[in-house]
Structures are given as C-alpha cells and as structure tokens.
Design a protein around this nucleic acid. Structure first.
Lengths: 212, 212
DNA sequence: TTTTACAAACAGACCGGTTGGTCTGTTTAA
DNA sequence: TTAAACAGACCAACCGGTCTGTTTGTAAAA
C-alpha cells in the first residue's frame, strides 16, 4: 500500500516541495503551511524531520541545489577537452535541459545568494562554498586548457572564472527579469565572443599544431 | 523650529528610510514599523503619504532607484565619444563613487528585479521599463560608436547591450554574494576584455585614421 | 490685524489575519 | 514493547492596515 510509512521518502518529499516554494517565492517568502499542503503532510511530520524553517532551507541548499550545480557544471568540467568550447556547450545545454518556467524563476542558487547572503551568515557560508567549488571547476578547466595550448597563457584563470560565473548568473538573472528566454540565448552568443577572446593566439597563417 | 511641519520633507524621509530597508532586507523583508522607527514618524504619517506598503515600494522604485540609474548610467552615455571606453569608465567610476557597504548590499534595482519580477506584475513592469531605458542607452551608444568607426560594424548592438547589462549586474551580484569588492574589479578587467573584442578591426600595420 | 474655519498632516491605539513553532496524542514498524 | 513517525489542535508574536482624535498651517471672513 502507499499508506506505509517511509521516512526517507517523506523527507525527500518535503525537500522537493520546499525547493519549489523557495524557487518561486524566495526563502523568506516560502511558507511552511504551503510546503505542507503541497505534500499532504502535517506540521508534526515536518518538524519531526527538520527542527526549524531555517534548517529546512539549509537542507534544500545542501542536498538539492548543491547537487544540481555539481551535476550541471562541476562534474562535466572535470575532464573536458576544450574548456572554452565546453563552457559554452554547458551554457547552451542548460537552455535545452531546463524548461522556460525554470528560466522565469531564475537560478535557485543565485536567488538564495541575492536574498540571504547579506542578512544570514549560515546561508552566506553555504552558498559561498558552492560558488567556490563552481568557480574552481571553471578555473581548473581553463588552466588545463592553457597547458594544452588551447587557452591564452597570458590570462588569469581565476579572474576569467570569476567573470564567467558572474556573466552566467547575470544572464540568468536578466532572463528572469525580462521573463524572456531570448535574453538567455543572446547573452550566450556574446559570452561565446568573450570566450573566444581567451583563445591562444597562434602566428598568422599557421595552424595551432603545425607551428614549429 | 525643527518641529514645523514639512510634508514634502516628511515624504522624502520616508522614501529614504524605505529605500535603505528595501536595500538591506528586500521588499518583502522590509517592515513598515522599521521604516517608522528610522524616521521617528508614526503610522498615521506614513499611511497619509502612501496608501499601502506596495505604493511605498513603487515610489521608492520610481523616485529614487530609477533616478539613480539615470544619473549613473543613462545620462552619461547620451553623448559619449568612445562607448567601449566610456562604458568601462562608468563601471570603474561606480566602484569609486559607492562605498563598500553599497556593494555588499547589491544593486537596488536588480535586487528588486530578482525578488519581485516573478511574483508581482506591478514591480515587473516598472523594473522592466527602467532596464529597458538602460539597455537602450547602451545600445544607442554602441551604434553611435559603430557610425564613428570605433565599434565593429559586424556586431549586433542590441545583443551586446543585453550582455553588457547582464554582465554588470552579474558582477554586482557576485560581489554581493562574496561580500568582496575585489570580485567587482576582477570582473571589470574581464568586461574590458570583452569590450575590446567589439572594437573595429583595422588592417594590420595601419592606424585607425591613417588607412586609405 | 485678528478671528474663524477647515483641510492637510500627523499621533497612536487598535485589529484581524498570518506564521513559525509547540505540545500532546496516536499510529506504525521493528 | 518501544521508539520513531506522524496527526492536528493550539499559541504567541508579528505585521500590514484602519480608525479616531489631535495638531498645524493657511486662507477667507470679520
């Protein structure tokens, strides 16, 4: 029967509903009652699994959002061949994977960052760690590209990673503001122009691998 | 005496306090009572000048925030000489004008956009108009640069303006998330790299004005 | 100039709905 | 048998907004 108890599943249901609520209304705008009505559970269940609204918010951040970022951005960059190409591919891929509704709601991580970073240390530290690992993945990929001669050795990989991350989040934010996915794709093309400007320069008239 | 009534001044005081509150806590996080305690006024005064919390929020957006954006970004771009240089200068200038505290709180306009665009039509329309004029200013400046031969005629000024706006807001957002102005300056250097990629290309070995 | 009238500009008590959280009791699984 | 896993009534604090009463500026009337 479906009436059998399953604590792990209950916990997951609560997390999923809370994630949706936070994604739509923000953390402060999320109401525990709405999470409950969405799951069909009662307060006893929620406060059995999570000791407070804040603990629930942290759990959503640590368990769902961080995982999503890792799957979409960090792991694919671990062993990429051409970082400049791959970063743009990941950007484009996000547009295919996620529906239009997702884009009108914005990046869950950045939403929380903008809302909570200045007013809650717990959120700021957790969010900071996630962004840190994201940026590191970008930076490492660019450095690997430099070693392979695909990326200009004159650039500072850390700086570029910071900018790419900012630009991606900026594009997602503007897409959300305008409620128009066309903004996302336009920004994607210009991001590609920037990425190309990071390419290793080879002497005119020679191919990258033909030089001596 | 300072006890004499001054409605216009009272209204301005309320707006200023509300702006600070919104900047720190967001619109939903702003409390009417805190605005009042900050101004020393009572509810009677506030609800005499503004019929609701929402009306107060709209007023802050229309009177304070829109004005600030116009002064900092739109008006300076009206008659600029070299848009690519001037856009970067405006970016750098913002870092000098505004204190560190401002950056840890983020762009007031984008904060509101991220928080309210998906859940309130009134805010979304107002915010959309402001961003629209901002982007138009960037776009027009780039087009003027194209006509003067300073900007590559192959680029789409609208697309570039969208990306620049997104990148600037993204940089401000990441600065806020990290609570570190160094992020802002790093992004500034990479933004400049992007802007340089929009420069008109002149034949190798010739100066821009010496070509025939 | 003084008085009166009146609306604008507030003060501040009050209210109803909302919200996160608690507490006790009951059911389920081991 | 027992502890975990819930149900659901209940609560205190908060919060936007209302309402009535009071003060102040001002312009017309005397």
């Amino acid at each position: 029967m479906t009436t059998t108890r399953n604590p792990a599943d209950t916990r997951q249901k609560i997390l999923a509903a809370a994630f949706q609520e936070i994604h739509r209304q923000g953390y402060q705008g999320m109401r525990v009652d709405r999470v409950l009505s969405k799951t069909g559970l009662k307060k006893g269940a929620l406060y059995h699994h999570f000791c407070s609204k804040q603990a629930l918010g942290f759990a959503v951040l640590d368990k769902l959002i961080a995982k999503r970022i890792a799957e979409l951005w960090i792991e694919p960059l671990q062993d990429c061949t051409d970082p400049l190409q791959d970063i743009h591919d990941l950007y484009e891929r996000l547009g295919n994977i996620c529906g239009e509704e997702f884009f009108t709601l914005g990046c869950p991580l950045n939403n929380l960052a903008q809302e909570m970073s200045p007013i809650d240390d717990g959120f700021r530290e957790r969010i900071g760690r996630i962004f840190q690992s994201w940026q590191q993945a970008l930076s490492k990929a660019l450095q690997a590209g430099q070693e392979r001669g695909l990326v200009d050795k004159g650039i500072d990989a850390e700086d570029c990673a910071t900018f790419i991350l900012s630009a991606v989040e900026g594009a997602l934010g503007m897409t959300k503001t305008r409620q128009d996915m066309a903004v996302y794709y336009r920004c994607g093309r210009e991001l590609q122009r920037y990425l190309n400007s990071l390419r290793a320069i080879h002497p005119a008239g020679t191919k990258p691998d033909s030089g001596g």
